[in-house]
């Protein structure tokens, strides 16, 4: 790595790391602390290949690494949770004062990991169906159906929330 590579990497971090961190938090539903660890690991990969990828859309590469890591972490956590909660946890009815935003985010966290990743990429990162498919390594059709099913769940939650607070 040349001095110039190093400073270009620093610039890349300054410009992109907050967005990557936010995406990681949304995809794996983790705390900022856990997500930071994940993003650091992903960025180490970026750093390792930096001289090769820096001129070839490093942002897309970094995003893919982060998403994959987030999906892996999220699945692992789910397994742990399922083991811990061998008995299903009490699903308390949310209090009325819980905001719609919180309710929707909670619903987002309950979605299957890859479905959640599709929603984050499509509606938070504003990627196209094509870009999302490339990044997730699946077909455009899968992106469409996952997004539609995820949105349907969100919509359902919205209407039940509106019904409850009316």
């Amino acid at each position: 790595m040349t001095e110039e590579d190093e400073s270009a990497f620093d610039e890349f971090l300054a410009a992109r790391s907050t967005a990557l961190l936010r995406t990681a938090i949304l995809v794996c539903g983790a705390s900022q602390h856990d997500a930071e660890d994940l993003v650091q690991g992903a960025l180490e990969k970026v750093y390792r290949h930096w001289p090769r990828i820096r001129n070839d859309n490093p942002q897309a590469y970094a995003r893919r690494v982060v998403i994959n890591a987030a999906i892996t972490v999220s699945r692992r956590r789910k397994v742990i949770q399922e083991i811990t909660f061998a008995r299903p946890p009490d699903t308390a009815v949310p209090a009325f004062d819980v905001g719609l935003r919180d309710a929707l985010f909670a619903e987002l966290r309950r979605l299957p990991t890859r479905m959640r990743a599709v929603l984050v990429l499509r509606y938070w990162e504003d990627l196209s169906e094509n870009e999302t498919a490339t990044l997730m390594g699946c077909s455009v059709g899968t992106v469409k159906s996952q997004a539609a099913r995820g949105l349907a769940r969100i919509r359902e939650r919205m209407s039940s929330f509106e019904g409850a607070s009316a």
Binding site: L13, T18, L21, R22, E36, Q40, L43, V46, Y47, D102
Partner: peptide, 23 residues
């Protein structure tokens, strides 16, 4: 609504300047 919920969730999240060092 979803986008807004996501924005609200991570609005306060900022990567620390120490990130480069950690990587």
């Amino acid at each position: 609504a979803l986008k807004e919920a996501m924005s609200a969730q991570v609005a306060d999240v900022q990567a620390t300047p120490a990130l480069g060092g950690a990587v």
